[in-house]
Deep mutational scan, measured.
Amino acid sequence: LKKVVALYDYMPMNANDLQLRKGDEYFILEESNLPWWRARDKNGQEGYIPSNYVTEAE
């Protein structure tokens, strides 16, 4: 899975979204639905995130 790091905080707009915290790492599960990607956080929560809020992890 592709790993990304959040560049900004993101508060979910609806139940399908995943909250982002700046500096945290996330795994990308699906990239087909631009600009929204399906992601999983370190706690196993899954949801959609804005792809322009993250960058690929080193």
Rank of each mutant, 00 (worst) to 15 (best):
V5K: 08
A6C: 04
N33T: 14
D9M: 03
N33S: 14
P12C: 04
N43S: 11
Q19A: 14
P35M: 15
K3F: 06
L29G: 02
M11A: 13
S32Y: 08
N16F: 12
K42E: 08
N52A: 15
M11P: 07
E58Q: 13
Y48V: 07
S32E: 08
E25M: 14
P35K: 15
W37P: 05
K42F: 07
L20M: 08
D17F: 15
E56T: 13
G47S: 01
K42S: 11
E25H: 14
Y26I: 05
K22Y: 05
E30V: 07
A15V: 12
N14W: 09
G23T: 02
W37I: 14
G47E: 00
Y53E: 01
A15K: 13
T55G: 09
R38H: 09
Y10K: 04
I28C: 03
A6L: 01
L1P: 08
E46C: 06
V54M: 04
E56L: 14
Q45I: 12
A39W: 02
M11L: 13
R21W: 13
E25N: 08
V4T: 03
A57C: 11
V4R: 03
R40P: 01
L1S: 07
N16H: 13
Y53N: 03
K22S: 07
Y48D: 06
Y26R: 00
V5L: 09
G23S: 03
L7K: 06
V5R: 07
D17P: 02
Q45V: 13
P12M: 03
L34P: 13
S32K: 08
V4Y: 09
R38S: 06
Q19H: 09
D9E: 04
A15I: 12
K42N: 09
M11K: 12
R40H: 04
I49W: 00
L29T: 06
E31M: 14
K22V: 08
D41V: 00
F27L: 11
Y8K: 11
E25F: 15
V5D: 01
N16P: 05
W37D: 02
P35I: 15
V4L: 04
Q45M: 13
K2A: 04
D9T: 05
G23H: 04
K3A: 05
N43L: 12
Q19D: 04
E56N: 13
M13V: 15
I28S: 01
K22R: 11
Y26F: 05
N52C: 14
E46N: 04
E56V: 13
D17W: 15
S32T: 13
A57F: 13
P35R: 15
V5N: 04
N14V: 06
L7G: 02
T55C: 10
F27P: 00
D9K: 02
E31L: 09
L20I: 05
L34T: 15
L29H: 03
D17R: 09
A6Q: 00
V5F: 10
R40M: 13
L29M: 08
P50G: 03
T55P: 02
A39S: 03
S51P: 07
Y53H: 08
Y8A: 09
V5E: 04
T55M: 14
G23D: 07
K42P: 06
L34I: 08
E30D: 14
S51L: 06
L7H: 04
A39M: 04
E25D: 06
G44C: 06
L29I: 13
M13G: 08
R38Y: 15
P50L: 10
P50N: 12
D41A: 07
E30T: 07
E56P: 14
D24A: 08
A6V: 02
E58G: 14
G44K: 04
E30F: 09
N52T: 12
W36D: 04
D9Y: 03
Y26L: 07
D41C: 03
K42L: 09
N33W: 10
E25K: 06
Y8H: 10
E46Y: 05
E58N: 13
R38C: 09
Y10S: 03
K42V: 11
I49C: 03
L29F: 07
E31A: 12
A39D: 02
W36F: 14
R38I: 10
D9W: 03
N14A: 10
G47P: 00
A15F: 10
S32L: 10
R21E: 07
K22P: 03
Y26S: 00
I28K: 02
F27V: 10
L34Q: 13
V4A: 04
G44D: 05
R38Q: 06
V4I: 04
L7P: 01
V5S: 04
L20F: 02
E30C: 10
R38T: 08
D41S: 07
L34S: 15
S51Y: 14
N52M: 12
N16M: 13
R40A: 07
Y8S: 07
I49A: 02
Q19M: 12
T55L: 09
P35D: 15
P12N: 04
Y10E: 01
Q19T: 10
L18S: 00
Y8N: 07
A57W: 13
L7Q: 05
V4C: 06
A39V: 12
V54D: 00
E25G: 05
